[in-house]
């Protein structure tokens, strides 16, 4: 039933995200030609647009996820969602997973769009034709010889679980707050109250975790005293993991997710008051 719930949540919301992703890809495809046109005011508008849209993409994603939760759970569609023969916990998990899929996809589509933008820009400039591929291969080999690339990949994978947990935590917090403002406990000014509660809980929980840990992953590029060439940074590049801090963050996030998930479940089971 969980898979079916997620499937229908995705089917019900893909239209909202399709427009954002289409706009990103259109910018990626048209943007390079505008830059190459050399018309300064157009380039200025394009870069302002790209900057604005980059910020807007993530804001729109966040707002669309809020709208998704509100529409699917607490507006007219909630009359269907909340009367389905599905466990309350399944409903909550489906909403969080759907939100996670969309936010992850937004990051991926954004990255791909920027890559397309860069490739088209260099390709239309003929930049690839003038590249000295032998020299490029030498540089790549020197970089890979330093081991820095592998180190970066390793550190990304080490940091990935925390990033995923952080993203899930934000979504569960969102579900919790939106559930709370749709219960008999909050009768008036639900939107401003919801925003205030989100900020307070978010700040409070972050502060509690911050008391107990420092940085989980510490990057280092060696002692600047000994850096004499451009590759010295890469040769000395590394990272160390503060495992105590890492585990505190990991366990803290898991506890927060479980606590807020349980809170959402309890509110839906005992205090729900859909209008």
């Amino acid at each position: 039933m969980l898979i079916k719930s997620i499937k229908h949540d995705l089917l019900s919301t893909y239209r909202d995200f399709l427009s954002v992703y289409s706009a990103l890809l259109v910018i990626a495809l048209i943007g390079p030609f505008i830059v190459n046109s050399g018309v300064e005011w157009m380039i200025a508008i394009l870069f302002l647009g790209i900057f604005g849209f980059s910020v807007a993409t993530f804001v729109i994603t966040f707002l669309t996820i809020i709208r998704l939760y509100n529409r699917r759970l607490f507006s007219a569609e909630g009359y269907l969602t909340l009367t389905l023969p599905v466990k309350t916990s399944t409903t909550i998990i489906a909403k969080v997973v759907t939100g996670f899929i969309w936010s992850t996809l937004t990051v991926i589509v954004f990255g791909i769009s920027m890559l397309i933008f860069g490739l088209i820009y260099y390709w239309t400039n003929g930049a690839f034709k003038s590249v000295d591929y032998l020299a490029l291969m030498d540089i790549i080999e020197m970089i890979t010889d330093t081991g820095a690339v592998w180190t970066v990949i390793q550190s990304v994978f080490v940091g990935l679980p925390l990033t995923i947990l952080d993203s899930i935590y934000s979504l569960v917090l969102l579900v919790f707050v939106m559930t709370l403002i749709n219960t008999s406990l909050i009768k008036k000014y639900r939107v401003p109250v919801g925003i205030a509660i989100y900020m307070v809980i978010s700040g409070l929980l972050s502060s509690i975790l911050a008391i107990f840990h420092g940085a989980a992953i510490v990057f280092s590029t060696g002692d600047p005293m000994f850096i004499t060439g451009p590759f010295d940074y890469l040769t000395n590049f590394g990272y160390s993991i503060n495992w105590v801090s890492y585990m505190i963050q990991f366990i803290g996030m898991v506890v927060y997710i479980a606590g807020l998930g349980y809170g959402s479940w309890w509110l839906l089971e005992h205090k729900l008051e859909i209008e």
């Binding site: 009359y79 909340l82 009367t83 205090k271 729900l272 008051e273 859909i274």
Partner: peptide, 8 residues
């Protein structure tokens, strides 16, 4: 209430 849309 019968349909679980009001719980309190």
């Amino acid at each position: 209430i019968l349909n679980g849309l009001l719980r309190d």
